[in-house]
Nucleic acid binder design. Structure first.
Lengths: 124, 124
DNA sequence: CCGCATCCTAAAGGATACTG
DNA sequence: CAGTATCCTTTAGGATGCGG
């Protein structure tokens, strides 16, 4: 092994692969895609409708990145019209589970966050 | 209550406050700041050293956003030179706990992710 | 030491048009 | 339906210099 390699994965280190993976799964659209797929499989346009506001370009790009990281599986059925089904891999499901937990926490804290923002803004 | 308000927080909805909060805490530097502060309190420059690669500007901006959302507390001691201590609020600590879980998962899966990437790239 | 203000560049992201 | 390609705008983000 190259002695310059980090022996432990450390997300605080700029070059650690865990950091780039984190950026992929925690990106604005990455999170929502993973969490949507945790509900069940989706086809491209259905997923696009589920994730309010995502553009075709960004969803496509996001799904490719997640597929490359081994989080998302892409299955093409060569029918006419074409069907492409997206689903989570085992790893993707584990990650999505964590993200769902985070989101549920935040959804429950919406009033607290709004109150904090109002206070902060009031003090300028 | 305004009948047009959503009755439940829904992160999939573009306008839901949970979505903007999610973007704040799951942003590239937001995650790392929260996770670093979960280790203990930090002063500005110490935190900057802990989070490898963050610029002064981005750390400052990130901390303000997290403070506004009620995740981070900022305490100024008017000494010379000035001391500014950052710490997590109770809400921030709960969020950070989830993020730590996610990061630990990803750090453990670094080999799997690297293998997935290699396979993907090999098939071009 | 802890920043903010400014300027500037690079990257993210949206709109549109087109293809298998 | 499921994208890709292009163009263009917006935002993120780094560098630098100054102030409390």
């Amino acid at each position: 092994m190259d002695p310059t390699d980090d022996l432990v994965a450390d997300v605080f280190a700029r070059a650690c692969p865990s950091r780039s993976t984190l950026e992929d799964v925690a990106s604005k659209w990455g999170i929502l895609a993973l969490v949507a797929l945790a509900e069940g499989n989706y086809r491209f346009n259905a997923l696009r409708r589920r994730v309010d506001g995502v553009s075709e370009k960004m969803l496509s790009q996001t799904l490719h990145t997640l597929e490359r990281d081994g989080m998302v599986r892409r299955e093409v059925q060569a029918t006419i019209p074409p069907r492409v089904e997206y689903s989570l891999t085992k790893l993707g499901a584990k990650v999505a589970e964590r993200l769902v937990g985070l989101i549920e926490l935040l959804e429950g804290e919406v009033p607290a966050v709004q109150a904090a923002r109002a206070t902060y803004d009031a003090n300028k």
